[in-house]
């Protein structure tokens, strides 16, 4: 086998070698980019992270006063809570809807309707996040005021709904692929045993597609954590520990977006914003790690 391969490589025309090299580079580049970005973000923030920043204050204090003239305080606790609370809320809304829609599209609807649905869902994914933010700022703001009698509609709920709308298309398309990937023989076998359509979905398809569905949910969550513009516009952008869905909040990403544009390069404030970037990196890393472990656990179980 090995000899055969070597031999064939020697005989390869130049174009094939070039293409192979190019594809190899594409593969390696993604790794390089991730490490490059991590290196850059870390380098910009490292100076202040290791000398000067009170890490305990950064993680536990709610006092975010980076532009104070005499008493600068960098407490990101409210921002961390904001990011997690709005993401969790968004997932509570998006996961049932997304998985439900995926099950409907893949199992219950007619082929013609399915094509239309898929196109519309993909269009939903193509709407830029600033447009979602604008809808949140105007339409949803007014709606929340009217429906919930809230004093102001720029709240965690508003941001959560916007994030849910943005992550539903991702969840639907990946979950639908996962369900499609379950072999038809499973469905046929279950139906032959007398299972109803719902029993087929619940007892056979969902367990069989578990990994893919989990991946869909986690990718949706990752989209929510990383989203910036929509939450910046819709959540009120206020340093505040939320007491419920109608409180206003501020997220880590929105803070970077709002403040990085106007800080002097190399400044303490500039470096703290990069430390927030490191924190976001760490959070996504942990989320991905958990996902990997869960999927591995599921695999071993089966």
């Amino acid at each position: 086998m090995n000899i055969l391969r070597k031999k064939s490589r020697a005989n390869l025309p130049f174009s094939e070698t070039a293409i192979e090299l190019f594809i190899r580079l594409c593969g390696i580049s993604s790794i390089l980019f991730v490490f490059g970005i991590f290196f850059f973000v870390f380098r910009e923030g490292a100076g202040f992270l290791f000398s000067g920043l009170d890490v305990k204050e950064f993680l536990t204090s709610v006092e975010w006063q980076p532009t104070s003239l005499n008493n600068k305080r960098y407490g990101a606790f409210a921002l961390i809570v904001g990011t997690f609370s709005v993401t969790i809320l968004a997932m509570c809304l998006a996961v049932p809807f997304g998985l439900g829609a995926a099950i409907f599209v893949s199992e219950f609807c007619s082929p013609k309707l399915r094509e239309t649905f898929k196109i519309i869902i993909e269009l939903l994914a193509a709407i830029p996040s600033v447009v979602w933010g604008f809808i949140g700022l105007t339409l949803m703001n007014q709606l929340i005021i009217v429906v919930f009698k809230a004093p102001i509609g720029l709240t965690m709920l508003n941001g959560g709904i916007m994030l849910a709308l943005m992550s539903v298309p991702i969840i639907v398309s990946i979950a639908e692929d996962a369900l499609k990937a379950v072999p038809d023989s499973y469905r046929e076998a279950a139906e032959a045993l007398g299972a109803t359509r719902w029993q087929v979905v619940y007892r056979v398809l969902l367990p069989a597609a578990k990994n893919g569905l989990l991946a869909a949910v986690l990718l949706g969550a990752a989209r929510s954590i990383g989203e910036t513009m929509a939450v910046l516009m819709a959540t009120g952008h206020s340093v505040n520990i939320p007491s419920g869905p109608l409180s206003w909040i501020r997220t880590l990403t929105a803070t970077i977006a709002a403040e990085l544009g106007e800080v002097a390069r190399g400044d303490e404030h500039y470096q703290v914003l990069f430390i927030i970037g490191i924190l976001l990196f760490t959070i996504t890393f942990i989320v991905n790690l958990i996902a990997d472990l869960v999927i591995k656990g599921i695999r071993q179980e089966s």
């Binding site: 006092e63 409210a78 102001i152 720029l154 910046l232 952008h237 206020s238 340093v239 505040n240 709002a258």
Partner: peptide, 10 residues
């Protein structure tokens, strides 16, 4: 300084 908890619009 300003008290935190205000809505900081863009």
């Amino acid at each position: 300084d300003f008290r935190i908890g205000s809505l900081d619009l863009h």
